[in-house]
Write a protein that binds this DNA or RNA. Sequence first.
DNA 1: CGACCGATTGACT
DNA 2: GTCAATCGGTCGG
Length: 208
Amino acid sequence: MVGIERNNRPRRLSRDFYKRTSISVAPDLLGCVVVRIHRGTMMAGKIVEVEAYKQSDPASHSYRGKTKRNEVMFREGGFLYVYFTYGMHYCANVVTGRAGRGEAVLIRAVEPLVGIERMVWNRYRRRRIRSPKELVELTSGPARFCQAFGIDKRMNGASLLEGQIYIVAKDRGISFHTGRSTRIGISVGNEKRWRWYVRGNEWFSGKR
DNA sequence: CGACCGATTGACT
DNA sequence: GTCAATCGGTCGG
């Protein structure tokens, strides 16, 4: 139903797709499907909320140049940049642009599609959710998405063109309305409207 | 070295 | 709405 099972060969997004600027790639990622193979189980989710970051942007980890932590962000597009924050959370970015640019797109929320039982276990260590709220909170938020999809620091630097995490193009013919706003949770660069989301989607809950 | 803080979340008033 | 949790990265001395 998602278009990933139907094709024998899933269409991973290409290097050329990722090598564009973060501000071009970010809105194009809406509606695309993140696929993760986690300990033999496939999970998939539709991307419904993203934010763009770039080196000239004071809110970006790449702002002060390349370091051990953000090295992946300076690679050519098509890698996963995972960082640890607030002493307990991971967040995942899609690296974009040409090598040395320091650009990336933060995945802020996905709509769960495949492997929901595994996501529930990863997030809550339970077999079942206890409320509709828990289903929405499963993957709505950058750290929630990472926890549900089993993404931690070991996934930092993973290639999206091969291996156990990748992104599949959206089905042609599917349409949806998108919105745009300022980014969430930053104290500088607040004026930039580099956040995009799928309007009306449950897993993008308005503010978040 | 010590101090501060964060691209967040969940619990609680 | 407020606020603590929790720790690696970063920066100043």
